[in-house]
Design a protein around this nucleic acid. Structure first.
Lengths: 139, 139
DNA sequence: CTCTAAATTTAGAATAGTTCTAAACTATTG
DNA sequence: CAATAGTTTAGAACTATTCTAAATTTAGAG
């Protein structure tokens, strides 16, 4: 009987690389998040996914982990909705389409989109980053 | 004894113009919001302001009114923070600097800033609007 | 291996912002 | 002014998120 093993090695490495202990919960979440390409999750959506797979991770841990991953540079938070917080596995330079009705985010490559004419910020302030959200709806 | 009257006439007109009954609460809020130039408020910040002036409007009414004003096109909602909802009296084409640490919004004229290269949205979707948030911090 | 200290996870309570509800009140119309 | 439709309100309810303190797990030393 061959035990079906999740591709957990990469996740462990990745966690070690950023100085996070590879606990079961972190490894499982990292495996899910980084297995495929770019993903956009919500704490609840990720928790549901985890639960659906029969894994047991508390919602609090999902929240904690998402924040830890974000601080570690593994994830990025995307603010598009006053109601929910989204996390994006794509930490590179890019922007988003946001389909409010469905809570769906779609990446726009950073090379595609360009913002020009950002004025110098008021005295004493420096630009941290420029976020573009293209709000879309079903036609 | 001359009664100090708030410049309430304009507010009443403005409300009538968009089909909202000029109740005391709406008139007071409209007067505050539209008296000066562009303003950025939060339900709570506006409620505090109102209370500070000795006026009595429930927080629920402030929320209701902000939404009604928004639907009527008198205000615009700005999404920059997962925690609070901001409302902007400037409903024209423009963008924002956002100083997260202090919750401060600063307008960027729409003429200044330009977004180029927004790809065509996925099939069946149309662009509703493009929001740019320039996140700034104290240097 | 086993033990310990430190880190992590967890259930559930707590919090913050916002929305809902149903009763009281007010503006408009006739 | 009376009727009625719209509005306001206090407080309950709700949602997403954070906190807390106790239980568990990990890493590393022996």
């Amino acid at each position: 009987m061959v035990k079906v093993k999740r591709d957990t090695g990469r996740a462990v490495e990745r966690l070690r690389a950023v100085g996070l202990r590879p606990t079961r919960q972190r490894v499982e979440l990292a495996s899910l998040l980084f297995r495929t390409g770019d993903r956009h999750v919500t704490a609840e959506s990720l928790h549901d996914e985890v639960s659906g797979l029969g894994l047991k991770i508390s919602l609090a841990t999902v929240y904690n982990t998402l924040h830890q991953f974000t601080h570690a540079g593994l994830l990025r938070q995307v603010i598009v909705d006053a109601a929910r917080g989204y996390f994006d596995t794509n930490t590179g330079d890019h922007q988003h389409f946001f389909l409010e009705e469905e809570g769906t985010l779609i990446d726009i490559p950073g090379e595609d989109i360009q913002v020009a004419g950002v004025p110098q910020p008021p005295m004493g302030l420096t630009v941290d980053r420029v976020d573009v959200v293209v709000r879309v709806r079903r036609a």
